[in-house]
């Protein structure tokens, strides 16, 4: 996955109503690319079948000690 450029990140910011400028913009680009990379690197088998269940208190899921 190619890294995002600062221009790409600036566009993402505009999409959510944020005006991003330097010096934060470059640092944010590093941060975002790092997070994207770390998450993309993790590809456990069967992930596509996993439903991210909303947080339900353990006692309601019947998972007591």
């Amino acid at each position: 996955m190619a890294d995002l450029s600062p221009d790409d990140v600036q566009s993402l910011g505009r999409a959510v109503g944020l005006t991003l400028t330097e010096p934060l913009l470059t640092e944010l680009t590093h941060n975002l690319n790092a997070m994207r990379e770390l998450l993309e690197d993790v590809r456990p088998p069967g992930l596509e079948q996993v439903e991210p269940l909303p947080i339900i208190p353990p006692y309601e899921r019947g998972e007591h000690a």
Partner: peptide, 18 residues
């Protein structure tokens, strides 16, 4: 700011990984 612009699909994947 990272959280404000993180693509939704990555957040979804994070929840799946969770």
């Amino acid at each position: 700011l990272t959280g404000a612009i993180l693509p939704a699909q990555l957040y979804y994947k994070a929840q799946q990984l969770r």
